[in-house]
């Protein structure tokens, strides 16, 4: 297995690419088999398509199946019905090209920050020196220079989450799936992290699917916001966010933004 350390070549012109989704769910259903209780129909025939380089946010009431959807898109779970397509091919197992950031940072406490970030490269058998250099670049990117040799224990929640993002990016996946990556953070840190994520996304042109609880966060970050219905989850609203980029926090106070936020909130509440 080889991996390229340089950013991938820019994708073909928009006209040639934008129609073929990089990641798609077709009539996806998932039921958790109940052990001693009734089975839980988490998702029922949900379909969606994500274009290359698109930033999609998924919002919805708690327990509607957002995490389940993301796990299915990463092939961490296998759908009970339907299928996930990655570049048009059925996705049957996790791929290097699909990176995942869990709700909690999920760092290995016995590894330093550097060693945690290096892990994906290590697993792919990259020699130590380039792996280290590459991990260092990502640590710089997420603003943790100087903490390379700290252990996760010595980090704040926000710093841990940034390590997790650096780790998900280090082997240069094309798609990034994020499950409420800022869920555990306070509002201010959260905003800063969102801005950082946006910067990373723009610098590296990834495709991003991110689950969030925050409507403003979704609108500030995403090209498109998917609103799921309560369980079993389906796409109730797919909202294009027409706000220009680069976006900044002050847009939150524009009437246009308020109208979008209201539309999303009303869709969620109309259960």
């Amino acid at each position: 297995m080889t991996i390229s350390l340089k950013p991938r070549p820019a994708p073909a012109p928009v006209s040639a690419q934008s129609h073929a989704p990089i990641l798609a769910a077709e009539q996806l259903s998932y039921t958790y088999p109940g052990r001693g209780y009734d089975p839980v129909h988490a998702l029922e025939r949900i379909s969606l398509a994500v274009a290359p380089r698109e930033f999609v946010c998924v919002v919805g009431p708690s327990g509607c199946g957002k995490s389940t959807l993301l796990r299915l898109l990463a092939a961490l779970l296998h759908p009970t019905a339907g299928q996930v397509l990655f570049e048009g091919q059925p996705l049957l197992e996790p791929r290097h090209r699909i990176g995942f950031v869990f709700q909690k940072a999920n760092l290995m406490p016995w590894r330093t920050v550097l060693a945690n970030v290096q892990l994906p490269l290590e697993l792919q058998g990259l020699p130590q020196a380039p792996a280290r250099q590459r991990a260092q670049e990502l640590i710089d990117l997420v603003g943790l220079a100087g903490f390379e040799h700290a252990r996760p224990r010595g980090l704040s929640g926000g710093m841990e989450q940034r390590v997790a993002i650096a780790r998900a990016l280090v082997h240069n996946p094309d798609v990034l799936l994020l499950d409420e990556p800022f869920g555990a953070l306070d509002a201010l840190t959260r905003e800063r992290m969102g801005a950082e994520l946006l910067r990373i996304w723009q610098a590296r042109t990834k495709t991003v699917v991110m689950v969030t609880h925050s409507i403003p966060e979704a609108l500030l970050l995403a090209d498109r916001v998917l609103v799921l219905s309560p369980r079993p989850g389906r796409v109730r609203l797919a909202l294009e966010v027409p706000l220009p980029r680069p976006r900044h926090r002050d847009m939150e106070y524009s009437p246009e933004f308020a109208a979008l936020a209201r539309q999303v909130r009303e869709t969620i509440e109309a259960a």
Binding site: R71, L76, R95, F100, F102, N106
Partner: peptide, 14 residues
């Protein structure tokens, strides 16, 4: 061993 760490390794195809 935390199941989430196992899943994390699965996404990396360990």
């Amino acid at each position: 061993v935390e199941p989430d760490l196992r899943d994390m390794l699965r996404t990396l195809r360990a």
